Simulated scan of single mutants.
Amino acid sequence: MAQVGKRGGNSSRPIEGGRTARPHKDARVPGRGPVVTASTEALTSKLEPRKGPVKVQLNTWVLASTEARLKWLVANQKFTVTSVVDVALQELLDRYNVPSADPDGQIREQ
């Protein structure tokens, strides 16, 4: 059986797949809290929870030509992929008279 790595001082620690990862320079030290810097505080303020509609992940495949057009729209019109896909799907669902859903994603049958 091959040896993946050794434990010790500043050596790398083995991780899945036989690769190694070096400890992060800002890693926690036992008995101490996380290292807080001005940049950490600025980042934390940006990570405040946003209030808005609930979103869920949607994975799908599209034609290469559709992706190219989507990338062009995002780059040239300052839209996001999420907003474009949401508007396009809403328009399609409205066209086919699919009932609306509440903010929690529940459709109340009419």
Rank of each mutant, 00 (worst) to 15 (best):
M1R: 13
Q3S: 10
V4K: 00
G5L: 09
K6V: 06
K6I: 08
R7K: 12
R7N: 12
G9T: 07
G9S: 11
N10Q: 15
S11M: 13
E16W: 09
E16C: 10
G17H: 08
G18W: 10
T20G: 15
A21P: 03
A21T: 15
R22P: 08
H24Y: 07
H24K: 08
K25T: 14
D26E: 15
R28D: 01
R28P: 02
G31E: 02
G31I: 02
G31Y: 00
R32D: 01
R32V: 03
G33L: 05
G33Y: 02
P34D: 04
P34W: 00
V35P: 02
T40V: 08
T40H: 00
E41L: 09
A42F: 04
A42M: 04
L43S: 01
K46I: 03
E48C: 01
P49W: 01
R50E: 12
G52I: 03
G52D: 05
P53E: 15
V54K: 15
V54H: 13
V56I: 13
V56C: 13
V56R: 09
V56T: 14
Q57V: 10
Q57A: 13
Q57N: 13
N59I: 09
W61E: 12
W61C: 05
V62N: 06
V62K: 01
V62I: 08
L63D: 14
L63N: 13
A64K: 07
S65D: 14
T66D: 14
E67F: 04
A68V: 08
R69P: 05
L70N: 02
K71R: 14
W72C: 10
W72M: 10
W72D: 14
L73K: 06
A75D: 15
A75H: 08
N76H: 10
N76S: 10
N76W: 04
K78D: 15
F79Y: 06
V81R: 00
V81M: 04
V81F: 03
V81S: 03
T82P: 02
T82Q: 13
S83C: 05
V85W: 00
V85G: 00
D86A: 02
V87Q: 04
A88V: 04
A88M: 04
Q90K: 10
D94Q: 07
D94T: 11
Y96M: 11
N97K: 06
V98W: 00
P99W: 05
P99V: 01
P99Q: 13
S100V: 11
A101D: 14
P103E: 14
P103I: 10
D104P: 00
G105P: 03
G105M: 09
Q106M: 10
I107H: 12
R108H: 14
E109G: 14
